[in-house]
Design a protein around this nucleic acid. Structure first.
Lengths: 348, 348
DNA sequence: TCTCTGCGGGACTTTAATCGTCCCGGCGGA
DNA sequence: TCCGCCGGGACGATTAAAGTCCCGCAGAGA
């Protein structure tokens, strides 16, 4: 109930909880160290002194703290408020907490965690999609080339795409050729769907898999294909998902020998057609054309999207050893990852 | 539970609920009139088009509305949010609703309603006090003269007074001389207490009641008294409470003949030493020196503070016939007033 | 008793966000 | 076909927030 209201409030005013938490933290610190001076507190909270000052002025006006020459201290009312708001803040910042912990554990610059578990609620996948589109918008500039991989998660991101000035003259390019999957979740389909929804342009990479090596090579020499591959290399934004190795192998037309090879190498994660084991070692690589891991440059933004507690191991295996600028995941996956990592505080 | 959280949130970020309500209203209107254009909606909501535009841009980004060339319409998510937030908003804006209705009914420019009933919870009286101080601060300028009457409500306002630059060189003056009450709630005591808490200066009006007419007249000729009376006339801010006639008569040293006179005239309210009946007619006037009603000028700000459902009739009787710039009351009184006024929608 | 440090708070400048205003091209109904 | 309303872009003005610097004061220590 409270959870729902907070969730809706987050929808209607996203940064409210942020400032709420900021002020809560200030009160917390004051309670902890009272009486404490402005400058000391500012360095403790690693904010500018001026910002903290306007905050404390506000808190004073609300009658929550007293400002004396010896420093600041909580009023009785401030104390009560701090107590009463404890659970609320704990929940409201569970996600931010997860983001911070995950970013540390996986060494990713930025982690976005949406609430829920996409394994349980399909809505959460849409939420992941929306978050993905938003992050893409944050990082893209008009005229950029955007490489998009396949998967069900990215398909929902394509659903959530909306036109925006940011997409002007951008080109959406599939990150890889066909991987023998259903057409709705192929990179070609998704990148073109995104482009159309964004009212941007797109290219297709028509390279079927399961070709003979010779045919494939000659196909790659084709001007149309070559152009797309060049575009792909110039992409400033790469968006991709992560799959569980078993699910992916099942989804694709995979030979029995490959299956056993994956099992032998205990592959857990798949992305871009690469299968990796728990230590991030590549067990197998699908034989398709497109973006290669070792071609990723540091000036490219790589957005990784994957959610659901069932994908926890896959995300962990992939993220710890492969570069990514932004990880977008959900609460279920985030908690599962942190739990299996052995960090006890991740449970609560 | 939810109520508490919202109340605390209001403490930590007062204008949150305001913008929440604004956005909620926008969604409401869109649901009602979809598809609707920006300009049409702006005039409906009587906001600037530009403001509404940034709001709708935001709502669009949050995926709550769709913006098409035909106009704006709700998404499914927006619909759900509107439903889910209904009760929350209803509560959160119960107070604002009351303020608006009261302002209309009593013809007061501004009404502040704090939540709760000071008859039931003593805390609410403090809240009234805080609100009073805040409104005073909004209207005062350094150097102003402030006239303060007596009463328990204003005593709690004095408790809540805090130093501020606004009080520089202000002078607090009691609105009336003694009225035979306990010293803690006399105007003299309260105005001086306020002044000291505000670190401002104050004057006292030492005119005991129950003097012979001759003595009183000669006392008023005294330079010290005369100076205070002159200051009183130059006051730019007048703060006073409203009492129930019966309570006040009981509290003061009142003769039996006066009591019967008040009863005959069916006096319900008392303020400034004036007793008025339900139609605002003056039944009796205490014989003390100080500010008179007919001396109030339109350039003065009159702040009236009174709360508690028991005072509903008194507030009603006073406010409908006497000038006041700001009425500060509580939920209990506000609802009681509107209920007895015969407005059926005030109940819920 | 004197100095010296850290306190709150005032004042001014700079920066960023917001809002007012004006305009354009498109789409649909008359 | 024309006209009115639609969304959306652009730019200057206004205002709020933050950066910066300084001051007087109170209390601890020499």
């Amino acid at each position: 109930m409270l959870r729902d209201v907070l969730e809706m409030q987050r929808k209607l005013q996203p940064d409210v909880l942020e400032t709420l938490g900021k002020r809560y933290r200030i009160l917390q610190y004051i309670r902890l160290m009272q009486p404490i001076g402005r400058r000391t507190l500012a360095t403790q909270l690693s904010t500018s002194e001026r910002v903290l000052r306007s905050e404390t002025d506000f808190l004073k006006q609300q009658g929550l703290i007293l400002i004396q020459s010896a420093g600041m201290l909580l009023t009785e009312e401030g104390n009560k408020l701090l107590e009463g708001l404890e659970q609320t803040v704990k929940y409201a910042f569970g996600l931010e907490d997860l983001e911070r912990k995950l970013a540390g554990y996986l060494s990713v610059p930025k982690v976005i965690v949406v609430s829920g578990d996409s394994d349980e609620l399909p809505v959460v996948k849409k939420e992941l999609g929306r978050a993905t589109v938003q992050q893409m918008k944050n990082r893209v500039s008009p005229g950029d080339v955007i490489a998009v991989a396949g998967g069900t998660t990215l398909a929902s991101a394509a659903d959530m795409m909306v036109p925006d000035a940011k997409w002007h003259n951008t080109i959406f390019v599939p990150a890889r050729g066909g991987l023998g999957e259903k057409v709705e979740i192929q990179a070609n389909t998704i990148s073109s769907a995104m482009a159309m929804k964004a009212q941007a342009s797109y290219r297709l990479l028509h390279v079927p898999d399961q070709l003979s090596e010779d045919t494939r090579r000659s196909l790659m020499q084709e001007p149309g294909v070559q152009e797309v591959l060049d575009l792909l290399k110039s992409a400033s934004l790469v968006v991709h998902g992560i799959g569980e190795a078993k699910t992916m192998a099942g989804r694709r037309t995979t030979s029995a020998s490959l299956r056993s090879r994956l099992e032998e190498g205990s592959a857990v994660a798949e992305s871009f057609g690469y299968y990796v084991n728990q230590d991030g070692k590549v067990v197998h690589r699908e034989n398709t054309v497109g973006l290669q891991w070792d071609e990723l440059r540091s000036d490219q933004t790589v957005i990784t999207v994957a959610g659901g507690s069932s994908k926890a191991k896959a995300i962990d295996a992939y993220m710890r050893y492969r570069p990514s600028s932004i990880l977008i995941t959900d609460e279920g996956a985030a908690k599962a990852i942190l739990n299996q990592s052995g960090a006890p505080e991740a449970t609560e």
